[in-house]
Deep mutational scan, measured.
Amino acid sequence: GLPEGWEMRFTVDGIPYFVDHNRRTTTYIDPRTG
Rank of each mutant, 00 (worst) to 15 (best):
G1E: 15
L2A: 03
L2Q: 01
L2R: 02
L2F: 09
L2N: 03
P3H: 03
P3W: 04
P3M: 05
P3A: 06
P3S: 04
P3I: 05
E4D: 12
E4T: 12
E4F: 10
E4R: 11
G5K: 06
G5P: 04
G5W: 06
G5Y: 04
G5F: 05
W6A: 01
W6T: 02
W6M: 05
W6F: 07
E7T: 11
E7K: 03
E7L: 04
E7Y: 07
E7F: 04
E7G: 02
E7A: 05
E7Q: 08
M8K: 06
F10G: 01
F10S: 03
F10Y: 13
T11F: 02
T11D: 15
T11S: 09
T11G: 10
T11K: 03
V12Y: 12
V12W: 12
V12S: 11
V12A: 14
D13P: 01
D13T: 13
D13Y: 11
D13N: 12
D13I: 06
D13F: 09
G14I: 00
G14A: 05
G14M: 08
I15T: 11
I15L: 09
P16L: 09
P16W: 06
P16R: 12
P16I: 11
Y17D: 02
Y17S: 01
Y17L: 10
Y17T: 03
F18S: 00
F18A: 00
F18Q: 01
D20G: 00
D20F: 04
D20E: 04
H21S: 08
H21Y: 10
H21M: 09
H21E: 08
H21F: 08
H21W: 11
N22E: 13
N22M: 09
N22S: 10
N22V: 15
N22A: 11
N22W: 07
R23W: 09
R23Y: 10
R23E: 14
R24T: 12
R24N: 15
R24L: 13
T25W: 14
T25Y: 15
T25N: 09
T25H: 13
T26R: 10
T26S: 13
T26I: 15
T26H: 13
T27S: 10
T27L: 03
T27G: 03
T27D: 02
Y28M: 11
Y28S: 08
Y28A: 07
Y28Q: 09
I29T: 12
D30P: 04
D30M: 00
P31A: 00
P31W: 00
P31M: 03
P31D: 03
P31R: 00
P31H: 04
R32S: 07
R32G: 05
R32E: 06
R32M: 05
T33E: 13
T33D: 13
T33S: 12
G34L: 15
G34D: 14
